[in-house]
Design a protein around this nucleic acid. Structure first.
Lengths: 98, 98
DNA sequence: CGTGTAAGGAATTCTGACACG
DNA sequence: CGTGTAAGGAATTCTGACACG
């Protein structure tokens, strides 16, 4: 399911990652949550899966820039990522302004 | 997906119902959210679907007691409902005590 | 019966920054 | 580079109750 409905605390529990890590991976454009009214991030189950992949890569010592490249190559998430990138950036943009 | 990960505000958006209504339907044992640490309710996509069904029935003027009976008959959600009932009640119980 | 609302508190999330490295 | 943390604020959620009916 790629509906963005999960808030960050729940994502932490599902992935074992900290809020800080999850927000950082967003900053590095590895994931693209949407923003609800109020600016609160919402993630999909697909995001959770991607985050788990990221966590595994990071454990192997792979840097975020590398992970990003690999994800684009694999293009397993590519179409979804493109969509998400646009929506996520629009969302963030509107929130900066309000 | 029957993983309980959606918080009530998002459920409101997905169903068009108010928080009050959603909590009331829980009180009437039509739905069985889980509780995260902190006592915050978490719903699944199945819960959202059930709530939409409830909303439709209510619009037709059907009372919650009737809806509950229909749901049990239809037993479309029956096995799931039984599980949910147990978990939901345990969850609520532990939160009353803390 | 089913739902709205004001009340007060508790838990969540957000951003920007400093820290270490 | 990647992550922790304290800071202060804003938005969310919770419960119990009163209201109307």
């Amino acid at each position: 399911m790629n509906k963005k409905v999960i808030s960050i605390g729940t994502v932490c529990e599902l992935t074992g990652l900290s809020e800080r890590q999850i927000r950082y991976y967003e900053e590095r454009k590895l994931i693209f949550p949407e923003r609800m009214n109020g600016g609160i991030r919402k993630y999909s189950f697909l995001d959770v899966e991607i985050l788990i992949d990221i966590a595994n890569k990071r454990e192997e010592g792979v840097q975020t820039a590398e992970i990003k490249k690999e994800m684009n190559k694999k293009n397993k998430y590519d179409a979804a990522a493109r969509d998400q990138a646009i929506k996520g950036q629009l969302n963030a943009y509107f929130h900066k302004r309000s």
